[in-house]
Amino acid sequence: MTQNISYFIEVLGIIVFTISGAFSAMQKRFDAFGVLIIGFVTALGGGTIRDVLIGFTPVTWMRTPDIPILIFVTGIITLFIKNYIKNLKTTFVFFDAVGLGLFTMIGIQKGVVTGLDPGICIILGTITGSFGGVLRDILLNNIPQIFRKEIYATACIVGGVIYFLLIQVIDKDLSRVITISLVCGIRLVAVKYNLSMPKFYA
């Protein structure tokens, strides 16, 4: 059951972050190849950095050929439904928030399986959830969201802390669902109500 939940989380995370990246590229008027590349980087950037940091090489997507295929198919489908997607004003924010929650949980799980300290697991979850978006924004010539006032990485950290508290008292699978929902919810609420971290000036 646990393995099935983990696999489902990873597949869903890859799909939603691919859509997020592809949608962002289409907003910048990239061609089809560019859209697929941005979708690929968004979906796998954070996980690739995480795997390199923990010495898990070749990285996950190189070990699992199904992952690049899934990203390619998702990207192609996104291209075909672009006219529908672009009419949804909240599409980018929604998919980005869902992907953030899912990938944060994936990163935390990787750290737990590796036997790392909870604090390091939370850092890995934050990297997994955030750094695909960082690479996406850099390639799109945008300031990465994680470095702006927006609540982004903070949502990952809060979710990670709550996860390790929850598994002390309730089932791990339920803890994962709650954590993913919490990270996603924090991100969406922050965007809706324009909540932000304090800014500092030199």
Results as ranks from 00 to 15, higher is better:
residue 51 D to E: 12
residue 194 N to T: 13
residue 11 V to K: 13
residue 193 Y to C: 07
residue 163 Y to W: 14
residue 183 V to Q: 06
residue 139 L to D: 03
residue 67 I to E: 07
residue 12 L to F: 14
residue 13 G to H: 06
residue 22 A to M: 11
residue 49 I to G: 02
residue 66 D to Y: 05
residue 79 L to F: 08
residue 74 T to I: 09
residue 148 R to Q: 13
residue 111 G to P: 11
residue 4 N to Y: 15
residue 65 P to Q: 03
residue 199 K to M: 14
residue 108 I to Q: 10
residue 43 A to F: 04
residue 110 K to G: 01
residue 7 Y to C: 06
residue 55 G to V: 05
residue 15 I to A: 03
residue 102 L to D: 12
residue 19 I to R: 02
residue 192 K to R: 09
residue 190 A to V: 12
residue 138 I to F: 02
residue 150 E to K: 13
residue 113 V to S: 15
residue 95 F to R: 07
residue 182 L to S: 03
residue 16 V to C: 14
residue 65 P to S: 04
residue 99 G to L: 06
residue 87 N to P: 01
residue 46 G to W: 07
residue 77 I to C: 13
residue 111 G to W: 07
residue 72 F to H: 01
residue 186 I to G: 01
residue 40 F to H: 10
residue 163 Y to G: 07
residue 200 F to H: 13
residue 47 G to E: 11
residue 32 A to K: 04
residue 45 G to P: 02
residue 73 V to C: 11
residue 7 Y to I: 14
residue 100 L to D: 08
residue 34 G to E: 01
residue 187 R to D: 02
residue 109 Q to G: 08
residue 83 N to C: 03
residue 41 V to I: 15
residue 178 I to V: 10
residue 133 G to H: 08
residue 9 I to G: 01
residue 137 D to L: 02
residue 97 A to F: 09
residue 202 A to P: 08
residue 192 K to D: 06
residue 141 N to Q: 14
residue 187 R to N: 04
residue 162 I to C: 06
residue 161 V to K: 00
residue 29 R to N: 15
residue 120 I to F: 12
residue 95 F to I: 05
residue 54 I to Y: 05
residue 84 Y to M: 09
residue 7 Y to K: 14
residue 55 G to F: 00
residue 196 S to K: 12
residue 37 I to R: 04
residue 138 I to N: 00
residue 18 T to R: 02
residue 98 V to I: 12
residue 109 Q to M: 05
residue 183 V to I: 15
residue 104 T to C: 10
residue 42 T to R: 08
residue 151 I to T: 07
residue 184 C to L: 09
residue 50 R to W: 03
residue 49 I to A: 03
residue 111 G to F: 02
residue 157 I to P: 07
residue 184 C to N: 10
residue 100 L to N: 07
residue 101 G to P: 04
residue 89 K to L: 03
residue 34 G to Y: 11
residue 75 G to L: 00
residue 17 F to L: 10
residue 99 G to N: 07
residue 63 R to S: 14
residue 91 T to Q: 01
residue 161 V to L: 12
residue 98 V to M: 14
residue 110 K to I: 01
residue 39 G to R: 10
residue 76 I to S: 07
residue 97 A to T: 00
residue 1 M to S: 13
residue 56 F to S: 15
residue 201 Y to F: 15
residue 100 L to S: 04
residue 78 T to A: 13
residue 91 T to P: 00
residue 66 D to T: 10
residue 176 R to A: 12
residue 173 D to R: 03
residue 170 I to M: 12
residue 77 I to D: 01
